[in-house]
Write a protein that binds this DNA or RNA. Sequence first.
DNA 1: ATGAAAGCGCTAACAA
DNA 2: TTGTTAGCGCTTTCAT
Lengths: 347, 347
Amino acid sequence: MPRSKVTIRDVASYAGVSRQTVSRVINASEKVTSETRARVLAAIEQLGYQPNAVARSMARGRTGMLACIAPNVTDYTFATIIEGAQAVARSQGYFLLSTTAPDGETFDYLMDQLVKSGRVDGLIVIQPYIEDPSHGVPAGCPTIFAGGGAHANQQVGGSVVLDDMAAGYTATKHLIQLGHQSIGMITGPLGEVCVQNRMTGFENALEDSGLESNPELIVEGDWTASSGYHIFRELWLNRENRPTALFVQNDSMAVGVLHAAEELALHIPEQLSIIGIDDIPLAPYFHPPLTTLRQDFAEIGRSAARMLISAIEQKQTLQRHEQIEAALIQRQSTGRYHKKVALNQAF
Amino acid sequence: MPRSKVTIRDVASYAGVSRQTVSRVINASEKVTSETRARVLAAIEQLGYQPNAVARSMARGRTGMLACIAPNVTDYTFATIIEGAQAVARSQGYFLLSTTAPDGETFDYLMDQLVKSGRVDGLIVIQPYIEDPSHGVPAGCPTIFAGGGAHANQQVGGSVVLDDMAAGYTATKHLIQLGHQSIGMITGPLGEVCVQNRMTGFENALEDSGLESNPELIVEGDWTASSGYHIFRELWLNRENRPTALFVQNDSMAVGVLHAAEELALHIPEQLSIIGIDDIPLAPYFHPPLTTLRQDFAEIGRSAARMLISAIEQKQTLQRHEQIEAALIQRQSTGRYHKKVALNQAF
DNA sequence: ATGAAAGCGCTAACAA
DNA sequence: TTGTTAGCGCTTTCAT
């Protein structure tokens, strides 16, 4: 779109005032007579004037634009964080530019193009990987780390993360309370912070109940349903000890497991309990409906945006670190451990 | 982030040239001695200079920023379109700002803030509703309508849409070819363009095969799994004529149907064939794996971004209208119609 | 309460 | 090939 033709000058001359007065009106300054204000407002209305955002950014040195960087935007969890952040940003007069950084090189490029070139005032970074969480966010750029994991040792920036350790603990405890003693786990990629934390929660829960974790029953997946499917088949068909319950670190993989179990004519939860994490919208519609932990991703996004804007507007320091708890959603994929049922498949 | 402190002036004086020369170097103009260029480049490197994007936008009258407006960004289909568009945008040196416009008021606000205030150079609009598709996109703003439906009568702007009529036809034809004669349909919200087109395709396919469409077997859903679930229960339990096959206008609703069918102890596809649309990532993992039509959403986004950038750079006119075809993905939720099986439920 | 002047950092048009 | 002169549209001093 070519530059909008009507500028502050036009409004000023139309209203018979100086440009500064117009500026004062559109910036809601108090130091204008209500009469002058009315005249200016009328002129604005008449001319259909809309202040040029680029010029304002130029003059003010701030753009009112935030960026959210995530590995991708199609994943339900990331998208929901982004949507939450966008809602808050917009309500506070900011815009949120979301973009993907699948690798470090892209991330660096974005830092140049977004931050160093002054396109945005602040950053929400969703960076789930353990390796170098900040990955070179330019010093002085207000940044909030969201969702991924506790980068608590971050020298700059606040964070809003899931309490993954508690989530792993809760999920595992749920299975233990149902009487399960042989509990397996399918993890996400080991290079991600949340995966490690969920594992720790898992181990802690077992330990607190005097159970031993069996390394044979812990397998690394890649978050996809496909990986859950293949891992479970392998686990069920080729291992000596079969678990009676499985903690799967996200719902997509859990669906893969459910599907494989179905193919193997396994009865869920009678022969195997399965718990996921995320509570994606389709979770209640799986076969059977999936017990899982609900994460409030939208709230993470909202909270991150709030923190970021506060920091930008210097209302508060950036050192806050927030954790969002997950809630157990009990459906039909988990059930009490019944020794007989688990051992003989005579249904 | 406060304005980056090193400007083109600093580089100029450091390199002992004028600002204009620096400008030429960073804009890859040919009219610079390779020796000067080297000196300037060295200065840039030394000082860690990064051109200020806002100032460039100001001087050039263009921002290099595009916006994609969708009803939401969490829906898999929208998110995928956005991701495709982002990839192309970035590869061409643009940024894509995606944002949501759940209602007309928000849309208008965005037009002011994004277009009239000069924040973006062009627009990709995902507006699935029949009512006023352009909804007041300011004249002169390069715009591409994506995904929603054929706004072919759009006076301004091109479009990249799904061939929903063909999709509806293909889905229905598939069921007919399996021998089904009593075919029901669960549609999306009737106010959406694609819904109408898919219905037309459905009707056409029936007609071409000499079948009559039964209005009793056509019910409006809202795209959610929950609506599919409830509609199907109602359809199955309270209607006189049960269909032997169901065309469900998206995969989420199809999952709801599958779930309800499971609860009713129906055998799919022996007693009922179900076909969806979208091919969401989890479709192969449903119970049974869902036959559906795959839509290449990423390609829609890519194509839309390409068209938009071409239009902005005046490489071509905006009047192109592209249609993306869907592909039948045959899985296990559809099967041949067997009269006996359908009539007696003795499995 | 209002206005005049001086930039913000860059590019475009013209000169040299 | 390089430098000079003007802006882009707005906000921010500082006067008045």
